[in-house]
């Protein structure tokens, strides 16, 4: 059994290509480019792109190439860990709750209801406020909100699979839990979990940028897309080219993951 059947539609290929190109840019930048995201050089105030600095410099003369590379790596890193955590946690608990029901289901639903009482971003904001500028706290807060979606979807799908005649027939024939999971539950989860993973990546990138934009996320001089937007905003008249860079990066990341996810929920 192949774990993932990779059959993408054209729009999904476009999305994959967008993400891949950003990823390659971010990795190549780390490997080949010698600039540092926090190194200031006030003589290079808001330079247009040129031979030395392909993407120009910001208001402190910092290399935009280095800053963009670093910010995109940060976004990928955070979304990767958040999605990984929430997919594993949400799917595992969702299958448990949907399959076993009973008290496991009740306890988990209680926890989920508490977490969902507040809009996700507010919860993230409050948590981020406790430890300002901490990458770990952002990771924890975003994952805490993100896994809920997986849990709910996986639980619902599992419940359908568990009560299906298909699974009942296999159970009658004497098959054990591993077989039932492999043949009946996983196939019904597979596509939704992958779709949700792509949406989740887009959402965690959005959340990180949003927090940065209202100065609640990571703190300067870290290069982070949302933070860069708000820092460069006052200079948009002088250097619209520089402001466009983080905006385009966010746009491509989110659109790329949304396209990859395929049909909306």
């Amino acid at each position: 059994m192949s774990l993932v059947t990779l059959r993408l539609r054209p729009s999904q290929w476009v999305g994959a290509a967008m993400i891949l190109s950003l990823l390659i840019f971010a990795l190549l930048e780390a490997w080949l480019h010698s600039g540092h995201y926090a190194k200031q050089n006030l003589a290079n105030y808001l330079m247009m792109p040129n031979v030395q600095e392909w993407l120009g410099t910001d208001q402190f003369g910092r290399s935009m190439m280095a800053r963009m590379g670093s910010a995109i790596r940060l976004s990928f890193l955070l979304s990767f860990f958040c999605v990984l955590t929430s997919v594993l946690l949400g799917s595992f608990l969702g299958v448990m709750a949907g399959w076993y029901g009973g008290w496991i289901d009740r306890v988990l639903n209680w926890v989920v209801n508490i977490l969902m009482a507040l809009p996700g971003l507010i919860l993230v904001l409050l948590l981020a406020a406790i430890l300002p500028g901490s990458f770990l706290m952002l990771y924890f807060a975003i994952s805490l909100v993100l896994w809920l979606e997986y849990y709910r979807v996986v639980r619902a799908l599992t419940q359908v699979a568990v009560s299906s005649p298909q699974m009942e027939a296999s159970r009658q024939l004497g098959f054990g839990r591993f077989y039932l999971f492999k043949r009946h539950i996983w196939p019904s989860l597979q596509s939704s979990v992958l779709t949700l993973a792509a949406f989740g990546a887009a959402n965690s990138i959005l959340a990180l940028a949003s927090l940065g934009f209202i100065y609640v996320g990571l703190q300067p001089p870290v290069a982070e897309l949302g933070l860069m937007v708000v820092e460069l905003l006052p200079y948009f008249d002088e250097a619209p080219w520089i402001l466009m860079q983080p905006l385009v990066a966010i746009f491509m990341l989110v659109l790329g993951f949304n396209l990859l996810a395929g049909k909306a929920k």
Partner: peptide, 13 residues
């Protein structure tokens, strides 16, 4: 003790 289903496709993956 087994059951034969009304809707045949419902019983197979």
């Amino acid at each position: 003790l087994l059951k034969l289903y009304q809707d045949p496709p419902a019983a197979f993956s």
